[in-house]
Amino acid sequence: MTLTASYERCRRLHARYGRSYYLATRLLPRWKRRHVHALYGFARYADEIVDSFTVTGDRARALDRLAARVEDGLAGKPVDGDPVLPAFLHTVRSFGIDHGDVAAFLASMRADLSVTRYATYDDLLGYMAGSAAAIGTMMLPVLEPEPGRAEAAREPARQLGLAFQLTNFLRDVREDHARGRIYLPMADLDTFGVHPDELGGRRARPAVRELLAFEAERARAHYRAAAGGIGLLTASSRPCVRAAVELYGGILDEIERRSFEVLAGRVRVPRRRKAAVFARHLLGSAQAGRAELRVRVELP
């Protein structure tokens, strides 16, 4: 597995499983894209381990092996034969990505092996700190904050990760229930009088829709908290992030348009809307990319 092949494997994982964000990454300068693909590919690779095996013990052993290979790789040891880790580790080293964020992500993946419900939203935030917020902060060095703005950009990056994942939770309520997991807080289900088994049904009664509307407003609050961070990024990354926000926010819009009926079928942003979002940001992306290339180095 060459480094080039590993990056290509990550790109394919991203293209297959993260279509909205993958479309947005096409607005990045070419050199940045493969690093975003590497981070997404690693996250998806770990997520597939958690979801793909039918026996919990098998999942735990596979996740242990992945964590051990990551630890070895971060320590500079070879990880020959792995399809994803060469690209991921190269990206981590290239951008000085915080190893603590990597550990936090893997800890949340391990939680999925045993934790199937969260009592309160604070408990869910604890899980998402690793599964989502840490992904946002791992992406941040690749997306490049403006000089001196990295610390200020960190919390908006965390908030955007939380917003994206909560959006996914709302869209995937029925699929998660089928896997034996409920990510909406139990306290909120109690407040709205929703029995957990209702989240696996074919139709959402009014109480379920009210619950989902409440959680959707939480997601929008995370989007608002993240909004100020886009202007802290280098200009060539802003069109990508703006497009990603519009596309994921579009999922919330579609859920709302369907009156929060997410149990009857998977909610998707129409292709025409995706294409319009991409086209709207394409010119700005090209202009920012050309501006970066025009930067001149003064030679003595």
Rank of each mutant, 00 (worst) to 15 (best):
M139Y: 03
A133M: 08
E175H: 10
M138V: 13
I135W: 00
G100R: 07
D122S: 14
Q159L: 01
R149A: 15
A163C: 08
G96S: 12
G180Y: 13
A129H: 13
V102D: 00
D176P: 02
V142C: 02
N168K: 12
I135E: 01
G136W: 05
D122A: 15
L160W: 00
M128K: 04
L143F: 14
T191A: 15
L113D: 07
D176V: 04
L113M: 06
R117K: 11
F164E: 06
I97M: 11
S94H: 14
G180E: 06
F169N: 14
R110D: 01
A129D: 13
E151P: 04
G161I: 00
G100P: 06
L143W: 13
L106Y: 00
Q165I: 07
P156H: 10
D172K: 07
D101F: 11
A107G: 05
L113A: 05
S131V: 00
E151T: 11
A152Y: 05
V142H: 02
H99L: 12
F169Y: 15
L124D: 07
S108G: 14
L160N: 00
R117Y: 09
P185S: 13
A129I: 02
R174W: 05
A133H: 04
G161P: 01
D123N: 09
M186W: 06
L160T: 00
G148F: 10
L124N: 08
G100M: 11
G161R: 02
P141F: 09
A103K: 13
G180T: 08
D188Q: 12
T167K: 09
Y118K: 04
D101Q: 15
E144T: 09
L125K: 14
G100L: 08
S94Q: 15
A119G: 12
A111K: 08
A178W: 13
E151D: 14
Y183F: 14
A119H: 12
A129R: 13
G136F: 08
P145D: 11
P185G: 01
F105I: 07
T120A: 10
G161E: 01
Y118D: 03
F192Y: 15
P156Y: 05
Y183T: 00
P147W: 10
A133Y: 02
Q165L: 05
G136H: 09
A153M: 07
H99N: 10
L113V: 08
R149I: 03
M186H: 03
A157M: 07
Q159K: 10
D188I: 00
V142R: 01
G96H: 10
G96P: 07
Y127F: 14
D188R: 12
S94K: 14
A178K: 12
S114C: 02
L189P: 04
D188A: 13
L189F: 08
L124G: 03
M139G: 01
D172A: 06
L189S: 06
Y183L: 02
P147N: 06
R158K: 12
R179D: 13
E144A: 15
Y127G: 04
L184W: 01
F192N: 00
D123W: 06
A132K: 02
Y121E: 15
R154M: 03
A150D: 08
A111N: 03
D176A: 02
A152W: 07
H99Q: 13
M138Y: 03
